[in-house]
Structures are given as C-alpha cells and as structure tokens.
Design a protein around this nucleic acid. Structure first.
Length: 312
DNA sequence: AATAGCACCAACCGCTCGAAA
DNA sequence: ATTTCGAGCGGTTGGTGCTAT
C-alpha cells in the first residue's frame, strides 16, 4: 500500500528559495494563517511541495525567529540540554525561543562538537574522552593551554557531587518507548549522567567565570529581549512580547533600522552567509514594510500573529 | 590567479506518529 | 481495524563562500 508522497514532485522546484518565493509564502501565510501545508503551494502560487514551504516558514521566515550565531548563553543551554536530552533537537529548540531545531542541530554539528572535542569531552556522552581517543590536534592544543585544562579538571572534580537537573526527567521518559537509535543513546546518556550533567556544569562554570546555567531559570518567550548590541538606537529594546507590542509593523520598522543586526555576532569573520542572511532578511522586512503590504501588517498585532499556529 | 579543501548553513529525504476518515 | 494524510523529527546532502597552498 504505502503512503503517497507529500506532493507530486514532478515539475516542482527544489533548492534555495528566491526572494520572490519568500514573498509569496509570507504574503499567503499573513493573509491566511498556517493551514494545510499541502495546499499552501498551490494557493500561494508556488512550485514547491508543502513540506518545503513549511520548512521554509518554520526555519527561516517566521517573524519570531532570531538570526545570527547562537550567543554564548544559548550555546551553554544547548550543551546542557543535549547532555540530558540527546539529539532531540526540537526539544532542545523548545527551550531556546526564536531558535529552530535545524539551526541548533547545525550549530551543534559545526561548532559545539568541535569545541567539546577540543576540551576533551565526548560530544555524544558528554563524558571526558579517554586520552587515547583525543586526537593529536587536541594534544598539541593542550600543550598550549595547560592552565585552562587544569582549571577544567579541578572544577570538574568539584562539580561531580553536585546534583544538577534543570530538565524534568519525566520529559525524557514520557515520550520515548520507541526503538530509535538516537533515543537509545539519549537514554544511555540520561542513565549515565549524573556525571555527564555535572561535567557540563563544569564546562559552563569554567567558561563563564562562575556563572552556572543550572542556576538560571529557563526563559519564557515573553521574557526575551533582543540583545542591545546595536549602536545609538540601543536605548530602546525590541521585545517579542505580545503584551508589550501592539503592532508588528512598528517592530519590524524598528528592526529594519538595523541593517546589520543579523550580523551582530558575525561581524568579525565576515562570512558570506552573514551577508546572505542579512540580505534575505532585509528583503523580507522590506517586503513587509512595502506600502502594498503595510496595511496587512498594520492589522496584524503580535497577539494575532502569534495565533498563526502557536509560533513559539 | 587558480584551485583544492574546508566550513557553514539551508534544504531535502525518509521515517514515525497521531488524528481523521 | 485499517488506511490515509498532515505534520514533525533527525540525519544527510548540496551549494556557496572562505582559506590555504
């Protein structure tokens, strides 16, 4: 029997989205909300499958998304959550408002994994790598940073006896009776993991001069403030709180005044993607702020936009 | 200047789950 | 009870830009 593909793939476009396609999708969703994704491409005039539209929206076009690299704090959150939840990126993402599972997954694979390995920590188990498995590069780097490593070890030992678990363990157990390998890994992680969790706490403490993530309550979406690292205009801070902003257009105008804000944490390396993100996001904002669409946006409050489909 | 290799991110793929018919 | 479908999830791939040689 088998199930039908999510769409008739013949003649459908794949690959990167164009600004024009983004506009169509945004226009459609702002006018109609999120409905049946399968129907979206046809109704929106897109030659994409519904799944592709959903991903584009959830991972890139949603108005509540943060852009740019993960902050140090967010990174620590990810490490800590990964120690407890494993590769359940959506679960991890749910603790980081404005971040998507895809984004976190990518960041984990490209940045955090390496960092942990560098520090002699197995990114899968969150336990110290045995010396035999630490690569030569790490060994060389160790020689260059002996003091830091000693500090890590000392704090690790100090943390080993401390109970730490910001995540309700029932969250881990409740969902996972399946046979997924990842989940098995997760459970292994969980089972083994007073040590692992404490080790993560140690990392956090080391990296943040005594600040421990486990002592910090998780941030609710309405509590999130965009980092005030922008020049001059930083006297006012944008907030995504539905209660504090009645008009999304005003917020978008505010955001659009920061031509470089998606690059906030990416200024130094001048990566091409930073520019692309900035460019695309700017075009999205431009679109939303165009005269043709400002009416639409003027009528969308955060409260209403939030109803699209519990965007957070 | 050319290009090979690397890093990064967006997008895709295939699978599972839950709800509805 | 079975089938179908929408949606979500995690793993993987492909494209682009950067860096080193």
């Amino acid at each position: 029997m088998g199930r039908q593909p999510c769409c008739d793939k013949v003649g459908l476009k794949k690959g990167p989205w164009t600004a024009e396609e983004d506009k169509k999708l945004i226009n459609f969703i702002l006018n109609n909300g999120q409905c049946c994704w399968r129907a979206v491409p046809k109704l929106a005039g897109l030659l994409r499958c519904g799944k592709s539209c959903r991903l584009r929206w959830t991972n890139y076009l949603r108005p509540d998304l943060k852009r740019g690299l993960l902050s140090e704090y967010e990174e620590k959150m990810v490490i800590d959550l990964h120690a407890q939840l494993g590769n359940r990126w959506s679960k991890i993402a749910s603790h980081l408002p404005g971040r998507t599972d895809n984004e976190i997954k990518n960041h984990w694979n490209t940045h955090i994994k390496k960092k942990l390995k560098k520090m002699g920590i197995d990114p899968i188990t969150h336990k110290p790598l045995s010396t035999s498995t630490i690569d030569q590069t790490h060994t060389l780097e160790q020689e260059n940073q002996p003091i830091e490593e000693e500090k890590n070890q000392d704090i690790l030992l100090a943390q080993m006896d401390i109970e730490s678990s910001p995540i309700d363990q029932s969250e881990i157990k409740s969902e996972d009776d399946d046979n997924n390998n990842n989940i098995n890994n997760n459970n292994n992680n969980t089972m083994g993991t007073n040590c692992a969790n404490n080790f993560v706490s140690a990392i956090v403490e080391v990296n943040n001069n005594g600040f421990c993530i486990d002592e910090v309550p998780l941030i609710e979406p309405h509590e999130i403030l965009v980092q005030e690292s922008t020049p001059s205009t930083s006297s006012s801070s944008f907030t995504s709180s539905p209660s504090s902003s009645s008009n999304i257009l005003e917020d978008l105008k505010f955001l659009s005044s920061f031509d470089e804000w998606p690059l906030m944490e990416n200024n130094n390396n001048n990566m091409g993607f930073g520019w692309e993100i900035s460019n695309d996001f700017s075009s999205t904002l431009d679109f939303l702020l165009e005269d043709d669409h400002s009416d639409m946006m003027n009528n969308v409050t955060f409260d209403e936009s939030w109803k699209f489909e519990q965007l957070l």
